[in-house]
Nucleic acid binder design. Structure first.
Length: 562
RNA sequence: GGGCUUGUGGCUUAGCUUGGACAUAGCGCCGGGCUUCUAACCCGGAUGUCGGGGGUUCAAAUCCCCCCAGGCCCGCCA
């Protein structure tokens, strides 16, 4: 479905055109009518001043003049003045158009585009397991990725592996100098965290170790083969651990890009060469940029006085590479990266390169304070998954004792994933949150399982119904309210990718489930007869499909029974 | 100290970019509903100075200014 033949947009455009022609105003206010109407205009307020008349009268006048417009008749648009507001109410014909699309697979997909997007998310340092803060990044990123795919974009999702940072050097020092035997059954990333935490403890007692860590960092930047090999080995093991966690979260990356590759292939050197030539460059031992023109007071250091590069230099090289290979660059980063993200964008612009669009999300903390891998203060994603799955299994066992263990486990796994992903994605990214076990383990309303449940209900009805002939004439208030909700879906996908805000989809899916549950309790489907039965079944099918598409875009299994 | 950001019923939260008609929902609380399409559900009720103050406007949770409180950032770390 393209924008022009979208049933809602088509009507909106027509109303705008008519109002514009009649009032001669360049800007016509036309907003969502809420419970009053499909669309509403407050143009009367605007004209009241100019015409020195009351908004109520003006609204009445305009309504009288335009209500009989033949195009309005054809499109099923009714106009009414309600006080100073001009309301536009659509008859059910536009809903029919949506429902016909909504019963088909792929509802909500937008036309294919040639734009290539690279989306980077998660990119956590490989010095310990992913925790509940990191997976906010993963889930926002993965949901965005799914939304972009649904919206027809060509997409590559990348994980930027920081394999040459100080943290990794500390890990390597730990493996070299401390008892670092892996415990039986211990996951790779948990093992690395244990060594990392122990090494940090040593570092606190004995600051002279810092020198040894610095040494490791210099050797790895110089490309010393034995050191590089050691770094690679432990980082790879940590990534193996991440892979398990990410798979359990239904999160996928197409490519892992290693930071050190940008040293080895000369890209970092090349970008530093280009930066040196900028008028903003200052070379006095260090190489730094003066970014005051972008509002940054502090200098942006690119190269240390000992000649080694800092993170910023490698990150610039990475982004120059992305810019060369993709049309759009999107990064999902924590709020702590706001300043350096701004500096990165500013610098890329100075170089004449494409700059990334950055989605920032605020931090997740624990009730006792902020999380820290170094201090061992975090709730790992693995622990979260284990606990939520256990809880889900107990719940399924109580509700569906007749199912065999395999079936119950499969449902529990999907329910747990839904609970975790939804709980995280539903909150606006700009809000900092405190991790709460009670919330995480709650499967009631405003949860992922709640939406899955509505979907399973719809599936159950359709299964019992067997075949039926589709019928699109709607009658009752509940039916219309539900169809209206279904109709919003393509616009929601559009908005999610336009504003880079995946939580809008979470809100939408919950509202659709709410409306369906209400319908379910008031309007019998299988017990009604003839045309009524058919049109309600058609509606249930549309809801089922829309919920399925919504859930899949949220990375949640649309299970058919639970 | 400077910058960014958040503040919405007891708790959590939508709406804020694009100002408009009774501020969205959940948890908890009170009262109802399972021999009836899956009760992970539904219906009804109580609970709000939209952090505080000022301003713009016919109209402010939404825009502007000041203040208060929390979070994050301000490294030749990543």
């Amino acid at each position: 479905m393209t924008d022009d033949d979208d049933p809602f947009n088509k009507r909106k455009a027509k109303i705008l055109k008519v109002l514009c022609e009649f009032t001669k105003e360049p800007e016509i206010p036309l907003t969502d009518g809420g419970t009053h109407a499909d669309l509403a205009s407050t143009i009367a307020f605007l004209l009241a001043k100019k015409e020195k008349s009351s908004p109520v009268k003006i609204a009445q006048n305009i309504t009288q003049e335009i209500e009989n417009n033949p195009d309005f008749k054809m499109l099923g648009i009714r106009t009414e003045a309600k006080g100073p507001y001009i309301n536009f109410l659509f008859d059910t014909s536009y809903l029919t158009e949506y429902l016909k699309a909504a019963v088909l697979p792929g509802y909500g997909s937008l036309p294919k585009k040639m734009v290539r997007i690279v989306l980077e998310h998660t990119s956590a340092n490989p010095n310990g397991p992913l925790h509940v803060g990191h997976i906010r990044n993963s889930i926002i990123g993965d949901t965005l990725a799914r939304a972009f795919c649904k919206a027809g974009f060509r997409l590559e999702v990348q994980y930027y592996v920081n394999d040459m940072g100080r943290q990794i050097a500390i890990v390597i020092w730990g493996f070299d100098n401390l008892d670092s035997t892996r415990h039986e059954g211990e996951k790779e990333d948990a093992h690395i965290a244990r060594v990392y935490i122990a090494a940090n403890r040593e570092l606190e007692h004995d600051p002279s170790i810092t020198q040894q860590v610095d040494n490791l960092m210099q050797r790895v930047e110089a490309g010393d083969p034995a050191t590089v090999k050691k770094f690679r080995k432990e980082v790879s093991r940590c990534l193996d651990g991440f892979a398990v966690t990410l798979k359990n979260l239904n999160v996928a990356h197409e490519r892992f890009v290693w930071e050190s590759d940008f040293i080895r292939n000369g890209d970092t050197k090349r970008v530093i060469g280009r930066l040196k030539k900028l008028p903003q460059a200052k070379e006095e031992g260090t190489l730094a940029l003066d970014l005051t023109e972008c509002g940054f007071e502090k200098e942006y250091v690119i190269r240390r006085s000992d000649g080694t590069s800092v993170y910023a230099a490698r990150d610039l090289a990475y982004h120059v590479w992305k810019a060369a290979n993709f049309d759009r660059i999107i990064d999902v980063l924590g709020a702590d990266h706001k300043l350096i993200g701004g500096q990165l964008i500013c610098t890329l612009r100075l170089l004449g390169e494409k700059a990334p669009e950055i989605v920032h999300f605020e931090f997740v903390s624990l009730p006792e304070g902020s999380m820290s891998t170094r201090a061992g203060k975090f709730v790992s994603a693995d622990d979260l998954i284990t606990e939520v799955t256990k809880r889900a299994y107990d719940e399924v066992t109580v509700r569906r004792p007749e199912l065999d263990d395999t079936a119950r486990k499969a449902i529990a796994k999907s329910v747990a994933l839904a609970a975790i992903r939804y709980d995280i994605v539903k909150v606006s990214p700009e809000k900092s949150t405190v991790f709460d076990w009670n919330e995480a383990l709650n499967f009631e309303r405003q949860s992922g399982p709640y939406i899955q449940y509505a979907h399973a209900r719809a599936c159950s009805i359709l299964k019992k119904a067997g075949t039926f002939s589709e019928e699109y004439e709607l009658e009752t208030e509940q039916e219309i309210a539900l169809a209206r909700q279904v109709a919003k879906f393509p616009a929601v996908i559009e908005k999610v990718i336009a504003e880079l805000r995946p939580h809008l989809l979470a809100t939408y899916a919950r509202e659709l489930a709410d409306t369906f549950n209400s319908f379910y309790h008031f309007e019998p489907v299988l017990k009604s007869e003839g045309k009524v039965r058919n049109r309600r079944l058609t509606l249930v099918k549309a809801v089922q499909n829309t919920l399925q598409e919504s859930l899949e875009t949220l990375g949640i299994d649309a299970i058919r029974t639970m």
